[in-house]
Simulated scan of single mutants.
Amino acid sequence: MPEAFTLTRLTRLDARLVPHDWAWARDNAAAIAAHWAARKAAKPALFDGRVLLSCACTVTEGACRIDLFEVAFSEFLAFREGGSPDPAVANAFAAVVPWSRDGAVVLGVMGQETANAGQVYFPCGTPDRSDIRRDGQVDLEGSATREFREETGLSVPLGAPSEWLLVSGEGQHAFLHPVHMPEEAAGLIARMEEHRAAQAEPELAGFVATRSRADLDADRMPGFVRAYLNTVYR
């Protein structure tokens, strides 16, 4: 596992929406606007919607509590691409990790029109307003399964164990939900590709299967992906 990351098995995940005065975004408003204008000019499909970031995350005996607050995507993008300069804030997201019947992990390749073009990671997305419940809780599990379904066309099998791993580091909290699918990797990818081909504007450019550490790509796979896969491949 890369030294910058820690991996923690969770017994409980409690995510909630909180108010937060993000001084970094307020103090850097002009730089954020300029950064967004440049990124938008390069990739016109980018949309400045509302997303959620973390301002606190604690784990006690396997129980995780994370506080999330709402920001503009342009603020998030400038923050992330600027090296996550506010140590009190982190990019938090949840992802289904699909394991095939023959022991492969399937990942998606981000499309050229996305902010993360060419990167290879588990189908996922930054949580947003649609993940906020009426009671103020944030449904990270629902966010993970929704993104997985939207990007692959597949659903998490009924009765799949609710296993969660928190991979933290480099300004990120990645909540990973490993799921064992009933098909071999070739069949899974074929169904995913069929779904992708039917989309008018697919977010993914394709899919890859990994089976060992030899398949890890430091140039295209983010650190949290390599940190997880390094623990499961011996």
Rank of each mutant, 00 (worst) to 15 (best):
M1I: 12
P2F: 06
P2E: 05
P2C: 04
F5K: 10
R9C: 05
R9Y: 05
T11V: 13
D14S: 11
A15S: 13
R16C: 09
L17K: 02
V18Q: 08
V18G: 12
D21P: 00
W22E: 10
A23I: 10
R26V: 13
R26A: 15
R26I: 06
R26D: 12
N28K: 00
N28R: 08
N28P: 03
A31Y: 03
A31I: 08
A31C: 07
A34G: 09
A34S: 14
A41G: 15
A45K: 11
F47L: 12
F47K: 10
D48S: 13
R50W: 02
S54Y: 15
C55P: 06
T58V: 13
T58R: 14
V59K: 02
V59D: 00
V59N: 02
T60F: 10
C64R: 03
C64V: 08
I66F: 09
D67A: 12
D67V: 02
D67Y: 10
L68R: 05
F69M: 04
S74L: 06
S74G: 12
E75G: 13
A78V: 07
A78P: 00
R80F: 04
G82V: 03
G83M: 05
S84A: 14
A90R: 15
A90T: 14
A94V: 08
A94D: 04
A94P: 02
P98F: 07
P98T: 08
R101P: 01
V105K: 02
V109E: 06
G111H: 02
G111A: 15
Q112Y: 14
A115I: 05
A115K: 11
N116S: 13
Q119C: 12
V120D: 03
V120C: 12
Y121L: 12
F122Y: 14
C124S: 15
G125W: 02
G125R: 11
D128F: 11
S130N: 10
I132W: 09
R133I: 01
G136R: 07
Q137E: 11
V138Q: 07
L140Y: 13
E141Q: 09
T145C: 09
R146V: 02
R146K: 13
F148T: 08
E150P: 01
E150V: 01
T152Q: 01
G153W: 04
G153C: 04
L154Y: 00
V156Q: 01
P157L: 11
L158S: 10
A160S: 15
S162G: 03
E163S: 13
E163F: 10
W164G: 03
L165H: 12
L166C: 09
L166M: 04
G171Y: 09
H173S: 00
F175L: 15
H177C: 03
P178L: 01
P178D: 00
V179R: 00
M181H: 01
P182W: 03
P182R: 06
E183H: 13
A186Q: 04
G187F: 00
G187T: 09
A190Q: 07
A190I: 00
A198D: 00
E201K: 15
P202R: 01
G206Y: 03
T210M: 00
R211Y: 14
A214D: 09
A214T: 09
D215R: 01
D219R: 13
M221K: 02
M221H: 04
M221N: 06
P222I: 01
V225L: 03
R226M: 06
R226T: 15
Y228Q: 08
Y228T: 13
Y228S: 09
N230K: 05
V232W: 09
R234D: 06
R234C: 04
